[in-house]
């Protein structure tokens, strides 16, 4: 169970939070002007990368505020937490995540290091 640093309440256990899916998915400012495809992508499609992922959390059993986080999905390390109103951080701003391979498999922390190619 992760420890997530709520920008308003401080570090708390993951059970107090609810994951809110991908962050920075903009709602089209004029829904009437977008095509069915564009609108459906906003409603239904979210990316699912292995590695750096920008996501939202809400402190549902705490202050009930929404905020953003950057998490390495292969190790579950939360690299940064920032407020909903803040700009999307650039990769350079982030703590050193140990992504090394093209597929995003870090040497330490993903738990899959034992699987070797023979």
């Amino acid at each position: 169970m992760l420890i997530i640093n709520c920008p308003y309440c401080g570090p708390r256990e993951q059970c107090e939070f609810t994951n809110g899916g991908e962050a920075h998915v903009a709602r089209p400012s004029d829904p009437e002007k977008v095509s069915d495809k564009e609108w459906s992508e906003y409603v239904f499609f979210r990316s699912n990368p292995k590695g750096i992922y920008f996501e939202r959390w809400v402190h549902s059993h705490g202050c009930k505020k929404w905020f953003n986080a950057v998490r390495d999905t292969s190790t579950d390390k939360v690299l940064k937490v920032y407020e909903i109103k803040d700009e999307k951080p650039s990769l350079a701003d982030l703590e050193n995540s140990n992504l090394t391979t093209p597929s995003g498999e870090p040497e330490v922390g993903s738990g899959n290091f034992t699987v070797r190619k023979i």
Partner: peptide, 13 residues
């Protein structure tokens, strides 16, 4: 209530 808070905080702050 969560739905209202979500849109109020993240979409129309």
């Amino acid at each position: 209530l969560s739905h209202m808070e979500e849109f109020s905080q993240t979409e129309w702050p």
